[in-house]
């Protein structure tokens, strides 16, 4: 763990993960600092997306998936059966690789989580606030009742971010959020990520190392076999990594 790290919001302790007999994560321990952007990078199949899924228990939807270890969110082990996964996912939101808006209007997409939670007072204001936070309001304020599918890919992804933000999470997980977007839409999402850390903790999985370098404060490098080999300030990882394998990976010598 980086020495200068601030108070962590999530502490992962000795996490093992299995898909049936196959082990996808091996003894991962990691503390995620609050109100910072943490990037998870590594080659395909290194377990980075699996790791992200365990942070809001999405792995439970995968048959045969099994975890060992602890994931403490504000000090409480979220892998414990006593934790309600629906409530957990409200507090730790997620944005996926491909924008996945619901087949509803722009407004209803953002209002969806609020309605599910029965939080319908001042709905318009809350939807507007979420869209503003996702830097989308100015582009959609005159078409709130239009289908979300009428938006561009980049706008759809920001809509999904607004949808996640509407229920006021503490942590936002992003799994390759720009991989389906063009460079301009990507730059907008990256700008947004930098703004979001004022209020949220962001954890982003990306196979685009340059993106990790641009947007994150801390970077964790996973390598094949599901081992996390280095976690440090992003500058340190990209300028002077401690681990030779990390250096070889980020300089393109393997992976």
């Amino acid at each position: 763990m980086p020495k200068e790290m601030l108070e962590p919001v999530i502490v992962v302790e000795d996490l093992d993960f299995y898909y049936g007999k196959e082990q996808a994560l091996r003894g991962v321990s990691l503390s995620i600092p609050r109100n910072k952007v943490t990037a998870i990078i590594g080659p395909s199949g290194c377990g980075k997306s699996t790791f992200l899924k365990t942070l809001n228990r999405l792995h439970e939807l995968i048959p045969g998936a099994r975890v060992k270890g602890r994931v403490l969110f504000n000090g409480r082990d979220i892998l414990s059966r006593e934790v309600d996964p629906v409530e957990l996912r409200r507090r730790i939101g997620m944005v996926f690789q491909k924008p996945n808006p619901f087949p509803k209007s722009v407004f209803e997409n953002v209002a969806f989580g609020l309605r599910v939670n029965g939080d319908v007072s001042n709905l318009k204001e809350k939807v507007e606030q979420a869209l503003r936070r996702a830097a989308l309001w100015d582009e959609v304020k005159d078409k709130l009742q239009r289908s979300a599918f009428d938006l561009s890919g980049g706008q759809q992804q920001r809509l999904c971010i607004a949808r996640a933000l509407a229920v006021e999470p503490e942590v936002l997980l992003m799994d390759e959020p720009c991989s389906a977007l063009d460079p301009i839409a990507t730059a907008k999402i990256e700008d947004l990520i930098l703004e979001l850390k004022e209020d949220y903790t962001v954890i982003i999985v990306t196979h685009n190392m340059q993106q990790a370098a641009r947007v994150s404060d801390y970077t964790a490098v996973f390598l094949t076999g599901g081992v996390m080999v280095e976690f440090a300030e992003t500058k340190k990882i990209f300028e002077n990594p401690a681990n030779k394998m990390v250096e070889d990976y980020i300089t393109g010598k393997f992976g």
Partner: peptide
Amino acid sequence: CIDLLALQQ
């Protein structure tokens, strides 16, 4: 300069 070169491409 080093930070910009390393992190911002």
